[in-house]
């Protein structure tokens, strides 16, 4: 096994570990926002690591460029999806745990509907 292969497997294992930690966080965290935080942060890190590992594995070939495209799209879309989800939760009236109701604004600033 060459050095590049070894690095790629280490990266993919680290990525898998990140996603696993995210899964544990989703189960263990107290409310929606912390759960989402756990899921989205580890997901992005895990995705980056797994995709980089796969790119090293693929070498200079067409799959490399496809992986780059997938990585770029997911790095942009997955935080956006997390934002949209959190915003929707806020607008539909789910206050974060540990925050008293009167301190929570009735609607998110960015997502305020007229």
């Amino acid at each position: 096994m060459g050095v590049v292969e070894l690095i790629s497997f280490v990266l993919m294992t680290a990525g898998g570990f990140c996603v696993f930690v995210g899964g544990v966080g989703v189960l263990r965290m107290p409310d929606l926002y912390t759960r989402m935080h756990a899921a989205s942060v580890t997901d992005t890190a895990g995705l980056f690591l797994v995709a980089t590992g796969l790119m090293l594995h693929a070498g200079w070939s067409l799959p490399l460029f496809k992986l780059v495209a997938i990585l770029v799209f997911l790095l942009v879309t997955s935080p956006t999806a997390a934002y949209a989800l959190a915003n929707a939760a806020m607008l539909s009236g789910h206050p974060p745990a540990g925050v008293r109701d009167e301190t929570v604004p009735s609607a998110g600033r960015d997502g305020e509907t007229p």
């Binding site: 942009v76 956006t80 934002y83 949209a84 960015d110 305020e112 509907t113 007229p114």
Partner: peptide
């Protein structure tokens, strides 16, 4: 339409 971030990212997609 009023959600700036999804709109900008989505339109780019």
């Amino acid at each position: 339409r009023h959600h700036l971030i999804p709109r900008v990212v989505g339109r780019g997609m």
